Amino acid sequence: MAQRQCILYYIIVVLDILVLFGVIGDSRLFTKDEELPPHKDAIKTIKTEYGDMYDCVDFYKQPSLDHPLLKNHNFHPEMRPTTVPKAQRGKEVSQKERELILDGMRLKDGGCPKGSVPIRRMPKHGAVRPPITSLHHLHHTNSSNYIRPGTFFAIAQTKNDIMKGHYGVGASISSYHPQLLSPVQYSSAEVIIKAARDSITVGTTVNPSVYKDNLTRFFVYTVVNGKPCFDGECGFISVRTDIPPSFPIKDLTTRGGPIFSQNMLVSHDPRNKNWWLEVNGEVIGFWSSQLFYGLANSGTYIACGGEVYYPGQKNAPEMGCGFKPQRRRRLKYVSYCNQFVR
């Protein structure tokens, strides 16, 4: 008998009740990527228009596969989910619109050679934001929750219920470029699935401490048994040659202009138990269930919304568009969620 698996899918078409992204002058604030040494197993290097340097590394030599629990894995670069969840996504975009959005995230010239994946050059000892380990203390949907000093969330969420499994979370998140007031701040829009000391967070962010610039970037944040990392440093296994985590978002929403959004979906594969990431309908990679204890089979908590961090500072960075919704005006869908069964 097929197991009924519920995925709570949040659609955020206009992220006005959340608020996200920012600018600190121009983009690059730290050491340039080209000044960093290439990965030892690089077979090709791609420099983007933003100055990022991505080294193409054999699929089997990407950092996440160095984990001792994955020593005898049978993964391969052609892996894809065995089932595709059917979500009610609200406004659907045409294939042409979808391709335009994806083209803004792809590496030029098709990206890396077949059988390899792009890994961005990053300093070995970069700053890492404090891990999201306290979210299980939030058990009501609330637009204002302080988790630790300097951190503010505006999220829709479920109770943390160990008796109810969640098998995915997704959202269509409007892409903005919010204003930061210092390089130690960050501002993100994200979806989260969590269980015990494990969590998966994906979304878009401006985070100078991690990415060494003020660009709005697609990001992946993984916590395995309380230990956090970004993108492909641990946990997340990429299967794409052309769309890496950390890639800048090209099409950004401006107030009064066209709305650009990124569809993010994390879903559990009932056959191989892996967690898969789709961005704008394209499979990007996965997390092996072998790494997790809490998330080995399902999550106990899911959330979608905005997060900002401003430690020891009076003024917070922007979240989302940076403006409060105009209640007297006719609003489009600000946010809504829909539950489905696969």
Rank of each mutant, 00 (worst) to 15 (best):
S116T: 15
N145C: 01
A42W: 01
L36C: 10
S143R: 10
K61R: 14
A87L: 15
K61W: 01
F152K: 15
C112N: 03
K86F: 01
G110Y: 07
G25I: 05
P77S: 08
P81R: 04
D41H: 11
M53D: 02
N142R: 10
R148G: 09
D58L: 11
G115K: 10
L107A: 05
S27G: 10
R106Q: 04
G90Q: 07
N145F: 11
P130N: 09
I147M: 14
K32L: 13
K40R: 08
H73T: 02
Q157W: 00
P68S: 05
R98I: 00
D109V: 03
Q88K: 14
S143Q: 06
S144P: 01
L107D: 01
S94M: 03
M79E: 10
R129Q: 03
H137Q: 11
E78Q: 11
K96V: 01
M122A: 09
P130W: 06
H76F: 07
S64W: 07
H39G: 09
M122G: 00
F153M: 08
P85L: 09
K114C: 04
I24N: 07
I101A: 00
A154E: 15
F30K: 14
G90V: 02
D161W: 07
V93K: 01
K124Y: 09
E99M: 01
P123H: 06
G126H: 15
R148I: 14
T82P: 04
K114E: 13
F152L: 15
G150N: 04
I132R: 12
S116G: 01
P81Y: 03
